[in-house]
């Protein structure tokens, strides 16, 4: 059974259709990349999958491990194993990162009938994951994303992903705004989560990230539809030639 199965998904806001029939299937162990010019609907797709109610789904079907995803609340989707690393992680003053993450982890554990982690075990887990991302312990006591640099915010997203251990990770422009060192660290974090049971969906409009996280499949999203799919070489081709040569929608997909 695929981890994610999107069939003819249509969604938009206030009478404007942004996603115009998206089809995509991710099997366990696969890493897919979605590329496309600015405004093509990549973030909309990511947000719709995570359950953002600003967007209205007008058609199609989405299954996560066989379950109807669209009928679930955002928190149920998260508990079912969907994780979205946001393109623009929001700052939450007054909530410390550790308090937030512990609450999130325990919410997921509770959903699966597992006992809550106590403070000691939680700290142990955090230390281990933070080492992976070369993060300082002081992170934990800072308010969620407040005053974080762009790179710190992205690292914080990956840290959360590592702690919550999702089945499907969607990373929205996780590479944007990162210098090369930060990119390496973040990519290392993502690669360490690659595994036979997990699916990863990378959203990016640069090829650069794909040098570090090599995808199994690459798709091009344009005007709310996937117009071409291929392997990692498609990304290189896009890098060399841009998006212009793809004007004709690829009916075969």
């Amino acid at each position: 059974m695929p981890i994610l199965e999107i069939k003819d998904l249509k969604a938009g806001i206030a009478g404007r259709e942004i996603l115009r029939g998206v089809n995509l299937t991710i099997a366990p162990g696969e890493v897919h990349a979605i590329m496309g010019p600015n405004g093509s609907g990549k973030s909309t797709l990511a947000q719709v999958l995570a359950g953002r109610d600003t967007y209205v789904v007008t058609g199609g079907e989405v299954r996560l491990n066989g379950r109807d995803l669209l009928e679930l609340s955002p928190e149920e989707r998260a508990c079912e194993g969907l994780f979205l690393a946001f393109q623009y992680p929001v700052e939450i003053p007054g909530v410390s990162t550790s308090y937030f993450l512990k609450a999130a982890l325990n919410a997921v554990r509770k959903y699966h009938g597992e006992p809550e982690l106590d403070a000691m075990d939680f700290l142990k887990l955090m230390k281990q994951k933070m080492k992976l991302l070369d993060m300082d312990a002081s992170f934990l006591s800072r308010a969620v994303n407040e005053g974080f640099s762009g790179g710190e915010k992205k690292r914080n997203e990956i840290l959360q992903m590592a702690v919550l251990d999702p089945k499907l990770a969607i990373l929205d422009e996780t590479d944007s705004g990162l210098d090369i060192d930060a990119l390496r660290i973040v990519a290392g974090g993502v690669n360490s989560l690659r595994g036979p049971d997990r699916g990863i969906l990378l959203v990016t409009h640069y090829q650069r990230l794909l040098n570090y996280i090599v995808p199994d499949y690459v798709h091009v999203l344009r005007d709310g539809q996937i117009i071409k799919s291929g392997d990692k070489n498609l990304a290189l081709e896009l890098e060399a030639r841009g998006y212009g040569w793809l004007e004709e929608p690829a009916a075969a997909h």
């Binding site: 955002p74 508990c79 946001f86 007054g94 997921v108």
Partner: peptide
């Protein structure tokens, strides 16, 4: 939405934000 997308129930997320 950010809090809920990490698994926190609606009411729990609201309570966390009001306390914050």
């Amino acid at each position: 939405f950010y809090l809920r997308a990490r698994g926190l129930a609606y009411n729990q997320a609201r309570a966390m934000l009001t306390v914050a």
